[in-house]
Design a protein around this nucleic acid. Structure first.
Lengths: 281, 281, 281
DNA sequence: ATAGGTTTTGTCAAGCTTTTGTACAT
DNA sequence: ATGTACAAAAGCTTGACAAAACCTAT
């Protein structure tokens, strides 16, 4: 819409609109071939934000800062799938508030499966990539991992009670990457399972012992590096007594390795893995 | 039809019609052997789209762009319209897993407007139709309503804070169909409004009271049955003090009824209604 | 905000504000490029602390010392039980932003059981009490119900797929209070059940029909008013064929009534009811 | 608390251009 | 029907301005 219509809709004079654009950059209208400003619906919204803030007592300059920040922030209604990128940006900027807000919104709007698949995994993956490319430091990587882990564990609360098939989840000795395993646990829990979570760096004997006490639960291991599996080969073979009892996942697993050990290969997509395990006899 | 007839029907001058054709290419009439322009029904439709947009404040050039874009259809990437049917089938089969997955995908891929318009409303409509035709039972209808309501309310998180014009949304006394109202609220929120949602079966006095406390917000009621409006006629008239303050929507509203009460009629398409309300002074 | 707005909000003169900054350092505003002071919300808070202390008889210097000390203080992490009251206050004040933030935090920090028991139910109960005592109006009650319902339904995502014992949840005909039933559903889901949710105002025949199609699921009804049960007595008796199949809950249920119908009485605490049902054979 | 200078911000003016419906000649 | 012309309405840019709000210093 052109400037007059925007002015009429928002009650802000055309001169003021032009001044706000020039002085604060709040509005970035397209231009018609002849040079007329053409505003979008989101411009209108930003103007409304401005007027509201100004009515609340903020100076125009501050209102403009807020309007711009809000725009790029988690309050953008109708964010169409860019959430994972936004989360990633917030994480590398160590901006916990924004990251939390994005996750909160997704938790309210999505199912566990979708949350994991659309938000958590893409963000984790992107963080990992940037870390590998040296674009972010250890601090960012740790901050991001811890925040994502905390939020997923928040959703995991209670997953160890009251479900019908039981699964033990653990990382083999030496393996510290547990985010994917937690994501898998959430997806499996959503399918009605009960989760016994042992986490990072778990001795195989511990798993063996627990399995004995729990009846005959499914056992799922996850590792990002195949060496973790190879290093525990004898113990793993001992664990895979019953066929179908032991499953391996994560980037470190591959079908051949799994077959050699008498285990299932679940691949490295946690949600798909949960579906596969749940569908298995 | 020839240009004079088209002009008479649409109220747009013949010169303007020719200018629109030459300048923007909105109309592509056939020609008679003698060279007369021969317009089709779809041309008339496009002219009406133009006039509506121009009345809404868009420039003729922009209106033409929209009219042409709309014409080439809602080929939204991703949602190929089959999603709504698939969702409907899943709901009728009481298959929550599939229904959830379909909605999840749409939430992640579409804007709020598109989600509501392409998925939620068609599914709701189809469920309603089948129910009316007796093809499905109460269980299916309840299951579907509850699931769709839950998903839309998930997207509604935060809609009551930080927007600029405020709107009170409620169903009049006795009215329990709130799905359309929620959809409307989402579409309105996407346009930057702040929503005060009162929901099903709300006494008019309550709305009046709240309106007083919120400054002078817009008030939107929705009812599937005109009797709900008629039953509250005196109170509604009292509510419609300022012109433009009260709007009625849902299948139970019609222009005449609304006019009689001093209210706007928003029709029964929630997204269109949100656009209309948002464009009003 | 600038100094004038801060002065207007707190009632402290601009000169005094500047003096407090110079003399005691209580305020540390940013500066605009041109040199104007820009205060934050926490500055406003500190000013309020100052005025309160001064009104209590402290000297300005002492008040400043306290205000600064308090500042580095009470950021208590973790829910100290006051959350339910805080939520209740926010709901009564129609403050969605605060209410949403409280619920978000609780969702991230608590298990479903704890969330329901520590936050949702107390808030619902308190809202109900205040409503009964006439301290709040219908608007507040509707607003609160809708917000709590929306947030609980957000957690309900996926509860209808992949669990082992199935339960049908519904309110009998005429009953519209479904919050407790949803809370019960969440608690039951956390115990591994699969939920078929029919919600408000469901005809008994519908339940009967669905129960037939789902094998022999548990059936749980909830009503706030015993009349809803009594009004459907014959149909309910027909529903309670197998002993232990039908359970009644909500304030409208009592042991005697349930016994008369051949049903279980689950009482009106949703979490306890879920435990009881889950523990039953 | 006052005085004197500065910053912020909405508005206005002048002179020129674009847009668009209508008029008119062919 | 076509093509050109035209004029009102709306917009653009630059520059200036004045009221309100704010600053420091006395």
């Amino acid at each position: 819409m052109r400037i007059g219509e925007l002015s009429r809709r928002t009650g802000v004079g055309t001169d003021a609109l032009r001044a706000w654009e020039r002085r604060y950059g709040v509005l970035r209208p397209e231009r018609s071939p002849g040079g007329f400003r053409l505003y979008s619906a989101s411009d209108e919204q930003r103007v409304r934000t401005m007027t509201r803030l100004i009515a609340d007592g903020f100076s125009a300059a501050e209102a403009a800062r807020s309007a711009l920040a809000e725009d790029s922030g988690p309050l953008a209604p109708g964010a169409d799938g860019g959430d994972a990128e936004a989360l990633c940006e917030a994480l590398v900027a160590l901006d916990e508030e924004t990251a939390t807000a994005i996750v909160d919104r997704a938790v309210a709007a999505l199912s566990v499966d979708a949350l994991v698949r659309e938000l958590m995994l893409p963000a984790m993956h992107e963080i990992g990539e940037r870390w590998r490319r040296g674009e972010i430091g250890v601090a960012e990587e740790h901050f991001a991992s811890n925040l994502l882990r905390a939020r997923m564990l928040g959703l995991a609360r209670g997953w160890g009670s009251g479900g019908s098939p039981i699964a033990i989840l653990a990382c083999p000795p030496g393996e510290l990457h547990d985010l994917g395993l937690i994501a898998f646990g959430l997806a499996l829990r959503a399918r009605g399972w009960r989760i016994a979570y042992l986490g990072q760096d778990t001795p195989i004997e511990t798993i063996e012992d627990l399995a004995g006490r729990l009846g005959n639960p499914a056992i799922v291991l996850a590792a990002a590096d195949a060496d973790r599996y190879r290093g525990a080969e004898p113990a793993l073979k001992r664990l895979a007594t019953t066929p179908g009892r032991l499953s391996l996942g994560g980037a470190g697993s591959d079908p051949e390795l799994a077959r050699g050990l008498g285990a299932n290969d679940l691949g490295s997509d946690p949600v798909a893995a949960a579906s596969a395990l749940s569908a298995a006899p």
